[in-house]
């Protein structure tokens, strides 16, 4: 479903010079699977997810979603995914209903079908209270629900969540995670990035630990525990990162001299 092969991405930074955001990242995720990308800030999670949602272009390697290449068939890829991140906000001057309807139309859903789907979706996500409320007036929880509805209105097989619980209170975060788990149970392939161990432990079927653009470990939670002889995910995570930092000089990971 999601295939990422040797993905690299570097960009020029004003101060640091050429920065390697991704350095040969590979992983695969299947339908009905919740795949977690676990990493500290600056690990390259957002860059990976932005490449998968065709917002950024990779410098090297390849990635495909449902068989469509993210560079060559970006329009098709966008029809196959629903993308939610901290930086995909809702429109301030649009009501919840209008916003979901707008994205449904952009996906080319016929009017009658769109109305049916929206009624069902608003009922399922319990968001009838956002129907006539402008984005600017919504609470964070309302906004999050509108974002989910916006991302799944076209019933995509793949959903990408980029640190979707960042900045949410416990109640809203819990509701969101519940909705995500429900989507997984409906057979969706879900790619979920986070730096919160609890979320990864609780939800993800497979976990990839990334740091400074490198894949440090990958597998089910059990596999990881067994392979590294460490039961606690947080300890495991910390150890892997410390080891990685020790191998590479502190400076080498971020800025590399231009070739």
């Amino acid at each position: 479903m999601i295939h990422v092969e040797n993905l690299t991405k570097h960009y020029e930074d004003l101060k640091l010079g050429r920065v390697m955001a991704l350095d040969g990242l590979s992983f695969h995720a299947q339908p009905g699977q919740m795949y977690g990308l676990l990493g500290p800030n600056g690990a390259g999670k957002t860059t990976t997810l932005r490449i998968l949602s065709t917002l950024l272009k990779p410098t090297g390697g390849s990635a495909s979603i449902n068989g469509y290449d993210v560079v060559d068939q970006s329009a098709e890829v966008r029809r196959e995914i629903g993308f939610i991140s901290a930086s995909t906000a809702v429109y301030d001057r649009m009501t919840g209903w209008e916003m979901v309807e707008y994205f449904g139309r952009l996906h080319g859903i016929a009017d009658d079908e769109l109305r049916d789907r929206m009624e069902r979706l608003f009922h399922r996500l319990k968001m009838n209270d956002t129907r006539d409320v402008l984005g600017a007036k919504m609470s964070t929880g309302m906004k999050q629900r509108v974002s989910i509805a916006r991302a799944i209105i076209h019933d995509p097989p793949v959903l990408i969540f980029d640190e979707a619980t960042a900045g949410l209170d416990v109640l809203v975060a819990r509701a969101l995670l519940g909705a995500v788990a429900e989507l997984r149970d409906h057979g969706k392939c879900i790619l979920f990035s986070t730096h919160i161990m609890r979320e990864a432990e609780k939800l993800c079927d497979r976990i990839a630990i990334v740091h400074r653009g490198h894949l440090l470990a990958e597998g089910t939670l059990e596999e990881l525990r067994r392979r590294h002889g460490e039961h606690d995910l947080e300890e495991l995570f910390f150890r892997l990162i410390t080891e990685h930092n020790a191998i590479r000089s502190p400076l080498a990971g971020t800025a590399i001299p231009a070739a």
Binding site: R78, S87, A89, L106
Partner: peptide, 14 residues
Amino acid sequence: ERGTLETLLCSPAL
């Protein structure tokens, strides 16, 4: 600034 451009960019619109 409001973060809605990214929402639109990842929609099917070219």
